[in-house]
Each structure stands twice: as structure tokens, then as C-alpha cells.
Simulated scan of single mutants.
Amino acid sequence: MRKIILLFACMFSISAFSQIKVLKNETLVEIGKENSVGLYKKENRFTFNYQDINTSNLNTFRSFSFLDVNGDVTDLYKLITDGFIDEPSGNVTLELPNDIIELHYEKNYGQPTVQFIQYINKNKKYVGKSQFLNKKQIDKIFGIGTNKSALYKKAVQRPTPVANVSATQNHVAETPATPKPATPKKKSRR
């Protein structure tokens, strides 16, 4: 009988103090994907996933992430596509919170392409490289031409036309203001 009670006590303590807990399933929204490079979004964090061609194991996938603070995703897209028009003389270096990313431009078969080079944890020893991507592939990754690009584009604020502003000011000036009653001030004794 003691052995049975001891067995139940051990079973109960194992289940009560288990080290596995169930976490929420994090949902990533895919912005765009081309071959082995993809852009994903979760809340305000954007993540690039790519197959690392710098390793001998072709099943190695790497990623780098950053927050879209001031339209950084739009600025990154513009930076990349501007490099297709006017190829920089060297690599463009970007510092992220955890990694350093270089944009390496090269012409392949006469067509400008870009490659992401990632220095993992800002360490020059650990390097990941994506495949070379052309402008059409970059557009697909950033969701250009689809409704998914609206997930990161800056909201365009339209200025109020000058004619409407002055008309509103004239209308306000013509409206008579109602005077407020004056409140008497109390004299203080010293």
C-alpha cells in the first residue's frame, strides 16, 4: 500500500512541476516571397528570412529583424531600388539592433542584382548570404503591386488647400464673439 501511495505521489509531483508549457501561436503575415527569400510582419516587427548560400548545408535558413519605427521598411525598399539605378561603388552597410547587414550590388548577365550579407550578432566571423536578387524579385518580396505593400507604407498626409484655410479664417473673423463677464478680483490684506 505504501508503495502505491508513494508511486501516486511521485506521479503527481512530476505532473505538477513539468517544465513544458504551451505558448501562443505567433502569427506572421507574409508580405512577399521569392524563391528562398521572404519578408514577414508581426505587429511592428519585420523579418527577412533567407536560405544561406554561404554554408555547405543548403538547409540553413537565417533571418534578421527590425522594427518599422519611422517607415524604415519603405526607406529600405527605396535604398535597395536606388542601388539598381545608380550602383554604389562599395557595399551599403546597415546596422540593425542585433546584426549588421550589407547590400552587395553586382551585375549578373548585364542585369543589376543585390545580395544581403548578414554579419550575425555583429560578428564578422559568422556570415550569412542570400541569393542575388534583381529588381523584379525585390518588388515581389516587398509586395509591390499587391495589397500587402499597404501593411508597411507610410500614410500620405495631404496638406489642407490654402483657399480653404483662408476661407475658414474669414468665416471665423466674421462671427461675432460673445464677451465673457468679468469676475471681480478680491483685494488681499497684508
Rank of each mutant, 00 (worst) to 15 (best):
N121L: 15
G83W: 05
N108S: 10
G71L: 10
K78Q: 09
K21L: 11
K140V: 00
S56P: 12
F84V: 04
T81H: 04
S130C: 09
F132A: 14
T74I: 04
E26C: 03
N108W: 02
K42P: 01
P112I: 02
P97N: 14
N147V: 00
V69R: 10
S65C: 08
S65R: 15
N54L: 09
T74Q: 15
E87D: 07
T60C: 12
Q137E: 15
P88Q: 04
V29C: 00
K135P: 01
V127K: 15
G145P: 07
L79P: 03
E102C: 06
N70L: 04
I80M: 04
K41E: 08
D99N: 06
K42Y: 00
T81D: 07
E43W: 04
G71Q: 11
D75S: 13
L79Y: 08
A150M: 05
A150L: 06
S149R: 13
A150T: 05
G38D: 06
V92D: 08
F142C: 09
G145R: 03
N134C: 00
E106T: 05
S63I: 00
L79Q: 14
V127L: 11
S36M: 04
E34R: 06
F142L: 01
V22S: 10
K42E: 05
L67E: 11
N57E: 14
K129W: 01
N44R: 10
E43L: 07
F132R: 15
K125S: 13
G128W: 02
E34A: 03
T74N: 12
K153E: 07
V69C: 10
N44G: 12
K42C: 08
K78M: 07
K135N: 07
I85V: 14
T60H: 11
P97D: 12
K33Q: 09
Q115H: 02
I141W: 08
N98I: 01
Q115A: 04
K33N: 09
D68F: 05
K148D: 15
K129M: 15
I100L: 07
Y105F: 11
K125N: 14
K124Q: 14
G143T: 01
E106M: 10
G38W: 00
G71A: 13
V22W: 01
K129F: 03
N44V: 01
Q51Y: 02
Q137S: 09
Y50N: 04
F116V: 09
S130Y: 05
E102D: 11
F64K: 07
L58I: 13
K21A: 12
